[in-house]
Design a protein around this nucleic acid. Structure first.
Length: 651
RNA sequence: GGGCGCGUAGCUCAGUUGGAUAGAGCAUCAGCCUUCUAAGCUGAGGGUCGCAGGUUCGAUCCCUGCCGCGCCUACCA
């Protein structure tokens, strides 16, 4: 409801100014610093001061007169040296919250594709991957909540270097047969096994540089996709993908489709993209210098052209290596073209065994049951370290003349998750003396140093479990596990969301394990307590009024209680979800919605402390408090739902 | 060298696109459980918004230059 006014007041005011005073001015709406100034502030008089060469205050007086009455607005006042402060009609506002007018369905803006998670399928997921998946999944929920159609893709790089390295480990370091690896893959924690094996292979390369030939050979086999080595590659990648999906499912993160690199190769997506790029002269064959024999994209395509020329450095990006193989970026250009429906080719799909509702790409022809790709807007949730590569991909679109799609290709970037030195020591991760003085230490998958996603979640569940047990000793064990799992998910998701995207998270285990203050469990606790009040009411034999059928005079009587400034401010705060969601989507910052959730919970805590709902004697006030309790409960649940945070039955 | 980003309370971070007295959490200190769950609430202290200019009615926010830090700048991804 608040959001309706945010949209309607500026347009209405602009219209009146135009009609009454022939003034065309953009009208901005602000929220006053102090609530006592009203619900909205219009600084329009300041903007006009120079144009009209008059004092803002004098202008403001004319404006108020010209604007006149607005629906739902009780008063427009002049304050400070020229602010117009808008006060809403509290009674009308409450009535429209209790009995909302029929909402018009929000129109989507065309299919939005979000690619997230995208973990190399060669080892267990770690906290960095969690930030990616949680950000992506939450943004998906946010867009869907605002009426958009969203398709979630999780790209699987199953033919890349990292998978090859694990295959090298199995084949050359451990001399394992396919059957032996199959047995390992079927056992629990195969992703943990590969985590260690990958680290061992990486360090083996370092000690024996000649062994890098194994990688090249294995990579070649995997790309060709015919022999036993490639079979091993698929075995590893498929099993690890399943591990990742199970890990993410624990956090309520799901996907619509898994496009795989193996199909990009076998269905010759790259060949099509390559032809397009050559045709439009977006690539050229380098004939000299360090990139001789490679197909490269000139730096001028994705960098400032003038600068690239004046400096004598070769910033060209290799797309096809001199041995004829394609880089990841090249395949990514083909994939990006497909996402927009510009490639003229499509995958085949089949259901992914063991994961209902998830489709995976295949090269084997299948009857088409679902259509994927061909989005209008594409968000790629990718770590900010890869911004250079994302620029190259967008430059590829642009070079092919797809200007509009280039504009709609959004690198939804985020900073890395590092560890605090304290946490490194807690986890027995060796760090140098120099690193101990830094605020954070970067982790390394190659070295096998980091925090695995499942370990972290398990530890959170355990910590929450101790707390739950101490408060609810009588509850059944299985129920307690369910509750503590929900709390752990809330803690983890909130922790990953509370920071804005380009803030490096210095992950601190002790901080993450804390459930007080600005955390997910704080918000969950508010939702639980709100629900508890209503449960208690019914337990006492009272019934909750049917608010949708409430007669107008009762609503008026409730509205009279909103003369209490605190109750009015609380009601306003609860009604701002849509506004917060909109702002959060507009800024591309899920952190803004997370912060709203926290503020909403704070508002509820204030309400809870100051207004004993059940013991209220005045029937009109009690009716208002009961309605507010229900409204708080609903809005807290909705907000948490959009953040992907479940609400426990009790805490 | 160049590109991108960051610098706000002791610590970790917000700051709604340039507006009224710069906000949270943690930590510290002082209080609040016989009343809907204390994972909570109330209060206190804590600031040269990195530095210096500029733009204007007004700058934490925009521009320029410095200082410090991080990431990227592969025929890895």
């Amino acid at each position: 409801m608040f959001h309706q006014f945010e949209k309607s007041i500026p347009t209405a005011v602009a219209e009146r100014l135009s009609q009454q005073l022939q003034i065309e001015a953009p009208v901005h709406l602000e929220q006053p610093r102090d609530a006592k100034f009203g619900e909205f502030a219009l600084p329009v008089a300041f903007q006009l001061a120079r144009q009209l060469k008059q004092a803002p205050k004098a202008i403001a007086e004319k404006l108020v007169e010209a604007i006149g009455a607005l629906p739902g607005v009780a008063a427009i006042e002049i304050a400070g040296n020229g602010y117009l402060n808008v006060r809403l009609d509290r009674g009308a506002y409450l009535a429209s919250l209790i009995q909302p007018p029929a909402a018009t369905a929000a129109a989507g803006t065309g299919k939005i594709i979000i690619e997230h998670t995208n973990i190399n399928p060669n080892k267990a997921a770690h906290i960095g991957h969690l930030r990616n998946a949680i950000l992506g999944d939450t943004f998906v929920r946010m867009l869907r909540a605002s009426g958009e159609t969203v398709e979630v893709q999780n790209y699987i790089d199953n033919t890349g270097v990292q998978v090859a390295d694990v295959v090298v480990g199995f084949k050359y370091l451990e001399h394992k047969t396919i059957a032996e690896v199959e047995a390992l893959a079927a056992a629990p924690r195969f992703d943990y096994y590969c985590w260690d094996l990958y680290a061992r292979t990486s360090s083996y390369y370092k000690e024996h540089p000649d062994s890098l030939a194994w990688r090249a050979e294995v990579l070649h086999s995997i790309e060709a996709g015919t022999d036993e080595v490639s079979q091993l590659g698929h075995l590893v990648a498929n099993a690890i993908v399943a591990c990742h999906l199970r890990t993410m499912a624990r956090l309520h993160i799901a996907y619509d489709v898994l496009p795989r690199e193996s199909e990009i190769l076998h269905l010759r997506f790259w060949a099509s993209a390559f032809e397009l790029l050559k045709e439009r002269k977006a690539l050229f064959l380098e004939s000299e210098g360090k990139n001789k024999g490679c197909w490269v994209m000139p730096a001028s395509a994705f960098r400032d052209a003038a600068r690239a020329e004046e400096e004598d450095i070769d910033d060209s990006k290799v797309i096809v290596r001199s041995n004829g193989t394609v880089t990841y970026v090249g395949k990514d250009i083909a994939y990006q073209l497909w996402k927009f429906g510009l490639l003229g080719k499509d995958f085949f799909y089949e259901p992914l065994a063991g994961f209902p509702g998830v489709m995976v790409s295949t090269a084997t022809p299948q009857p088409a049951t679902q259509q994927f790709g061909a989005g209008k807007t594409v968000y790629n949730v990718i770590d900010s370290r890869q911004s250079y590569l994302q620029d190259v991909v967008v430059a590829g679109l642009r070079a092919l003349g797809y200007e509009q799609q280039a504009e709609q290709s959004i690198h939804f970037s985020y900073e890395m998750v590092a560890l605090t030195p304290r946490t490194c020591i807690d986890l027995r991760i060796p760090i140098s003396e120099e690193d101990q003085k830094k605020p954070y230490v970067e982790v390394s998958g190659r070295k096998g140093l980091g925090v695995k996603a499942d370990d972290l979640l398990n530890e959170l569940i355990e910590t929450a479990g101790r707390e739950v047990a101490s408060r609810n000793a009588e509850a059944a064990e299985s129920e307690r596990v369910e509750i503590s799992t929900r709390i752990a998910i809330g803690a983890l998701r909130y922790f990953m969301l509370k920071f804005t995207r380009n803030t490096v998270i210095a992950f601190d285990l002790q901080e993450a394990l804390s459930f007080t203050g600005e955390t997910g469990p704080y918000v969950q606790y508010a939702a639980v307590r709100a629900g508890r009040i209503l449960t208690k009411l019914v337990d006492q034999g009272e019934t909750l009024p049917n608010f949708s059928q409430l007669p107008p005079e009762q609503i008026s009587a409730m509205a009279a209680e909103l003369a209490d400034e605190n109750l009015w401010q609380l009601t306003l705060a609860v009604s701002k979800l849509e506004s917060a969601l909109n702002r959060s989507i507009g800024s591309g910052e899920p952190a803004h919605l997370a912060r709203y959730a926290f503020q909403l919970a704070q508002s509820f805590s204030t309400f809870y402390e100051n207004y004993p709902v059940i013991y209220e004697k005045n029937p009109d006030k009690k009716r208002l408090l009961l309605w507010m309790t229900g409204y708080f409960a609903t809005q807290l649940q909705r907000t948490l739902g959009i953040l992907g945070i479940p609400v426990p039955a009790y805490m």
